[in-house]
Amino acid sequence: MSAAPQKTKAGAEKIDVTVSAVVPLNELVTRFEFRRTDGRPFPPFSAGAHTVVEMNDDGRTRLNPYSLMSDPADTSTYAISVRRDDQGRGGSLYLHTHVGVGDRLTLSYPVNLFPLDLRGRKHVFLAGGIGITPFMAMIAHLDRMGGAWELHYACRSKALGTYAEDLMQAHPTRAHVYYDDQNQRIALEDLLDGQPLGTHVYVCGPKGMIDWVHTTAAAHGWPDENVHSEEFLAPQPGTPFEVYLSRSDITIQVGESESLLEAIERCGVDAPFLCRGGACGQCETDVVEAEGTFEHRDHWLDDDEHASGKKIMPCVSRFDGKKLVLDR
């Protein structure tokens, strides 16, 4: 129709925030709390949602997604908990080493790719390490709404058990913590066996844990729709490569520690995105021509699409070869 046509920038609707607290939780994890710079309340969000944090790292824009872990009903504050990744491309390191109280950042509106199934009569949460963060918001939400839940949380050690002590203290019968260094393991099969009809299971953690939960639940006859997972993929560094963007008619270089999407943005080409983690499908891009090998790392395209060489998700996937032309 284009009644009143408007070009809205991809990834528009951002929120300017000021860091209101920086709370180191242990050797690796720090919580960052934000207030809106304009003093207004934040929009409410649904438990499980993430925000994309925009950082200006010495002229270079970094965009990293983090689960919102504050109470969704508290519109005065948004909080994220960030695990320092010394091997990563630097977003978490930047937050840990450069961002302090009073600093300004930009957040995207919340996006939820890991929502609660509101039909659930009971919710069982399985967390591994920093995967605890979305469950912090879910627990706050269910406590307010009177929902039934239990948490099983595996972490490396007491010292690295982010929020583990707090959770056990606040919810002694519902929160269960397992320490790897004490050889404690989640008894998943027993756990899945004893659940009432209408229970939903949610897992957030390393890929191995997610696969383990899906496989075990399926083997125990759980319907797929009742098992939910979220794995944030961080773009991995890789060999630099060159891409020709046919619609924009420019050739760009993708550096070792930036994603293809970041390189496209750096060169001033407007590209859609949402999760920046290979899950939402928003940045799907058509391949016009390719001589080489794709390194597909997304969850969005199916195996056939990966094999076809006709599509790529530039937020996490890369390319190794002589020539790549994208419709962008």
Binding site: E13, F45, Y109, L274, G281, Q282
Partner: peptide, 16 residues
């Protein structure tokens, strides 16, 4: 459907 699944908070859409 693909479009609607991605409608974001703060970015409503419309059609006639």
């Amino acid at each position: 459907l693909k479009f609607l699944l991605n409608v974001r908070q703060g970015s409503p859409a419309r059609r006639l």
